[in-house]
Design a protein around this nucleic acid. Structure first.
Lengths: 328, 328
DNA sequence: AACCGGGTGGCAACCGATTGCCATTAATTG
DNA sequence: CAATTAATGGCAATCGGTTGCCACCCGGTT
């Protein structure tokens, strides 16, 4: 069922069929309807590659994540997928395994086969990113690079809320449990934390970096205890959940002896034990917005974007992993 | 950077460049090396669509899931992704939103742009599936259809283990909490459950069907309590976790008053409260195996497969959501 | 009657590879 | 030494659309 079959069937040229299907106003109504009817009848589906080859548009967007098993991305994938399907585009999922080289390599490889890419938690240095953004429409998530449009979740603001929350509960020694140094969000959160602490005349301790997996949580928990802090704010929920587990194992009461605040509010944060106080991030929305920005960008190539960055608000969701500071 | 640029640069014909890159033995060593060097230098990446157009191979595989946010699929996606990347293929992720029509429609749409598809939890009727499998390489996961190769996780066997476990703890009234009727696995588990119960002269109760989300768990929990059963085996972990939550809310002690056994051992099953006794399924492996089968099938098109179905074993992981039956 | 312009639809040149077929050359063999 | 064969690389068709350009038809103007 190619365009030619339809052409033969309806007695017009292939080019007319093409136009009837993709630029309907360019062909006479009766011809168009005859063609469209035939197309429907034959169950015609245009060949994506052929179309891409000549038009340059693939109707496909790549979503790069650093680790497909990180629940944080589930929401992102979902949101992106939703929005893409609404626009009739396909989603190419790419796992960069947390490696900048691999990320770069894969980006290069798919460069020609997608209309644009969404980089969730890119590990690429700023300069490399700029280069890529110059030759391919890019939207980043939680990563701010000049000239590259992005959607960032305002977790720094959330971190401040978390600090206020903890300070109001009489915590004075609060530590930040850091994630990967190559993560832009990690540094942003740390900066916000120091600022918020300073506002109360306090200084934050910092431990890490740790990998973003639950197993890293064990090490992180021990390190956190060593700081003597009465509360810890972690880079993300995965780490926080790992910490909770290790603390339970060591018989440390949460929040009696130490409070733990996570970040992102991923799947599981509400039913772990104790349920995690965390920064609720509109992850799915971030995915949708990222796609919207990208598609919008694609439609107006050449024009300068009206908005380069969208900041999505977060809020602190208080559950049972945080409580009053223990009496000394 | 097309094949022609390289041809011009090295002074050979484009066809020779093509061969040097894709069928190296077909061209002289020195010519080949000169071409390969040039390709490397120019950072040449073959255009996927162009290649697909002429060769018919897209090096892309679609993975259809019924709901991208279901943690069960995370592992599957991961496993598939890993194996695909190792083979240099790309992964097109498609969310069918639990709708058979949408699934069919999307399958039809991508039919020409992928080399094959993996259907995880297809909702399609058997006949439709056969039709699709005839015109496109297909591997199903947890779905057995004659003539379609598949990888199925042997949860029926696991369900039997679960029943043995519960019966040994003196449970006599055990209920199955059913998932979507359109799920093949759901029926398979129910059958296994009845068989296992019958072996002990017992009959299983059944409640449901319920949606596979945590929120459905609330309704399911209440229904489960109404059966008077002292233990419930659920279609999957998501449902089980929802049930645990609702039971906690109602002040029902687990496992003191009622035991709950889940299925799949998804992310979260080990840290919910209480940690869930569940059937541990090799999900990631399932993803890898599915891809292997598909790629293998692609390489030997026309030949009849040696193995049509791979059965992956499960085992019961006993945690704290199951315990001795309460005294009457 | 000659002219103009909008609406239609065909022709043909791409897009960037792959691949069957053939010509050339070199190597092997009787 | 002639003949057969193998290795190598070029030509050109092809995959299935898209799109610029042009020709034609027709009604409406001067």
């Amino acid at each position: 069922m190619t365009i030619n079959d339809i052409a033969a069937l309806t007695g017009v040229a292939a080019s007319t069929v093409s136009r009837a299907l993709s630029r309907p106003d360019r062909v006479n109504r009766v011809t168009r309807e005859r063609i469209q009817a035939a197309a429907r009848e034959l169950n015609y589906v245009p060949n994506t590659q052929a179309r891409a080859l000549s038009s340059g548009r693939t109707e496909t967007v790549a979503l790069l994540v650093s680790d497909a098993t990180n629940p944080f991305y589930f929401g992102l994938i979902r949101g992106a997928q939703q929005q893409l399907r609404a626009a009739g585009h396909a989603l190419l999922l790419i796992d960069t395994e947390d490696s900048a080289e691999l990320e770069n390599h894969l980006l290069h490889k798919v460069r020609r086969s997608v209309d644009g890419v969404i980089l969730a938690a890119s590990r690429l240095p700023e300069q490399t990113l700029s280069v890529i953004a110059a030759e391919l429409p890019v939207v980043t998530v939680n990563r701010n690079v000049p000239g590259v449009r992005s959607v960032v979740i305002d977790s720094p603001d959330g971190v401040m809320q978390a600090v206020e929350h903890l300070v109001s509960l009489d915590h004075r020694a609060i530590a930040y449990v850091a994630g990967p140094p190559s993560s832009w969000a990690n540094e942003a959160r740390w900066r916000a934390m120091r600022t918020a602490m300073a506002r109360h005349g306090l200084t934050a301790a910092r431990v890490g970096p740790f990998g973003v997996s639950r197993s890293s949580g064990s090490v992180a928990a021990d390190a956190l205890l060593n700081t003597g802090a009465t509360a810890g704010v972690t880079f993300n929920d995965l780490l926080a959940i790992g910490i909770l587990r290790r603390l339970a194992e060591r018989g440390v009461d949460v929040p009696g002896e130490i409070s733990v605040v996570g970040c992102d509010d991923i799947f599981g944060a509400d039913f772990c034990s104790p349920p995690l106080t965390t920064l609720t991030a509109p992850i799915e929305q971030a995915g949708r917005v990222a796609v919207s920005m990208l598609l919008d960008h694609l439609e107006h190539l050449g024009e300068t974007a009206s908005r380069q960055t969208v900041l999505l608000p977060t809020h602190l969701t208080i559950r049972q992993s945080s409580g009053p500071a223990p009496r000394r």
